[in-house]
Structure formats: structure tokens, C-alpha cells
Design a protein around this nucleic acid. Structure first.
Length: 234
DNA sequence: GCGACAG
DNA sequence: ATCTTGTCGC
């Protein structure tokens, strides 16, 4: 997996939005590799102006952590709804560069095409990497949907003026749904199935959940956590 | 002008 | 996202 470098430091929000409109047509909708051998999760946390990006590669379908990477960098772009990619992608690429293996699919904490210009962070990263990506966000950015059934696995399409751009998916009975959308080289059906298969127990799928944990506690504590878990599972 | 608004 | 403790429920 070739990981390019980017520099958004001189972008104005207007320039960023214009670039999104220009890049959007490059997104490819097609089924994900099935089944993938590995799925990676990506998450970025920010504290005191320093972003920490974490990526965790899990084997599939057994969902064991097999590799990970971390990177830190000062944030250089403000948080603006719809422009999250310009804040988080630079440090995310640095974390991905640390990986010694290329995951078959990258699951991002944010939207894919469920975005006003169809360019959520998952789609943007997928295009930069030319690699399969999907978005799995904790809340909605764009599109509307009807009431989602209470059972695990129930979902409703995210609609934008008649176009289906993603889904509100219930990964745990009675718990707030997650928002799934294709990033790049993915489609909604395979994205929904992958997220569900990656979330056997918690609301958030394991790849994203573990990436969040790694970004929060750091490599040392994360490694200890993984080893402790390996003991229990055999 | 008002409300909505990934992380 | 981050700031922060306890607390209700399976």
C-alpha cells in the first residue's frame, strides 16, 4: 500500500470544499474483497492541539489484533463539519505509514460518501491510497432516515433527495445505531455486512474501537491489553 | 435570520 | 473531539 504525504496547511475552507467537489468523481463503488483476510480500523484523537492517529489491523473473521501504528502531529486545520478530512488526514497517513502490512479494508471513524459533497474522510483517504475504505461514524452528518428497528442488524437507508448514500445500522439491540457508508472501492451492501461482522459484541466495530483505545492509551498500554486478551482467548 | 452540524 | 463522577441497568 503506497501512502502519500499531503500538506493542507495553506488551504482555506473554501479551497478545501472546492477540492472535494473536484475529487468526488474519483470514488469507485464496488463490492469489498470478500472475505477480507484483514480489516484495519483508524481513529484520531486530539488533546491540547496535538493529534494522535492510531491504526489497528485485525485478522478476519476472528478479529485479533495483528499489527498497529501510531503517529502524533500538531493539528493545522480547524474542525469544520464537512471538512474533517483536512484536519485528520495528515496525521492519519503518518500512522498508516508505520504499518508493515497492508490491510485488505480500512474502516474509518467518520463518513464515506454520506457527505454533502460525497467526500467524507473515508472516501478521501481511499482515493489518496487507492485502497478499499468504508466509513463507520458514531453520529449523522448528512442524509435522512426513518426509524431503525430495535434488533441488531436492522438498518435504514440514509437518503439525500432520493439517493441512498449510506445506512443507519443497529449493531446492538436497543442501542443508538452507527452510520455506515462506502468510502472507496466499496459498496453499501458489503460495508454493512462487514461492520456487522466486526461488531459481535459492542456498538462500535472492533477495528475502530481498538484504534480508539490505542489512540487514547498509547502503544505500551495497548500492547499489554492485547497480550492479556490473547491469554484469555488462547 | 434560524437551525444543523462526522470528529 | 474534549472537559469530567457518579450512576442506572443487564
Amino acid at each position: 500500500m503506497h501512502v502519500p504525504a499531503v500538506d493542507f496547511s495553506a488551504y482555506t475552507p473554501q479551497q478545501a470544499a472546492e477540492e472535494q467537489r473536484q475529487l468526488a468523481c474519483r470514488a469507485v463503488l464496488c463490492p469489498l474483497p470478500h472475505p477480507p483476510a484483514t480489516v484495519a480500523g483508524l481513529d484520531v484523537g486530539i488533546r491540547n492541539g496535538i493529534a494522535c492517529a492510531a491504526v489497528v489491523v485485525l485478522s478476519y473473521p476472528d478479529l485479533r489484533a495483528v499489527a498497529w501504528g501510531v503517529a502524533r502531529a500538531p493539528v493545522s486545520f480547524p474542525y469544520i463539519p464537512g471538512l474533517l478530512a483536512y484536519r485528520e488526514i495528515p496525521v492519519a497517513l503518518a500512522a498508516l505509514r508505520q504499518l508493515d502490512i497492508a490491510p485488505d479494508v480500512l474502516m474509518c471513524d467518520g463518513q464515506g460518501i454520506a457527505h454533502p459533497r460525497r467526500m467524507g474522510i473515508a472516501t478521501h483517504l481511499g482515493i489518496l491510497l487507492d485502497h478499499p475504505t468504508i466509513g463507520c461514524a458514531k453520529s449523522r452528518l448528512w442524509g435522512t432516515h426513518g426509524p431503525v428497528g430495535q434488533a441488531r442488524g436492522e438498518w435504514q437507508p440514509l437518503d439525500d433527495h432520493g439517493e441512498t448514500i449510506g445506512a443507519a445500522l443497529r449493531t446492538r439491540a436497543g442501542v443508538k445505531p452507527v452510520y455506515v457508508s462506502p468510502g472507496h472501492r466499496a459498496d453499501l451492501d458489503s460495508a454493512i455486512r462487514l461492520v456487522l461482522a466486526c461488531a459481535p459484541r459492542y456498538r462500535l466495530p472492533e477495528p475502530t474501537r481498538l484504534a480508539h483505545l490505542l489512540a487514547a492509551v498509547g502503544e505500551a498500554e495497548f500492547m499489554a491489553w492485547v497480550k492479556r486478551k490473547e491469554m484469555k482467548r488462547g
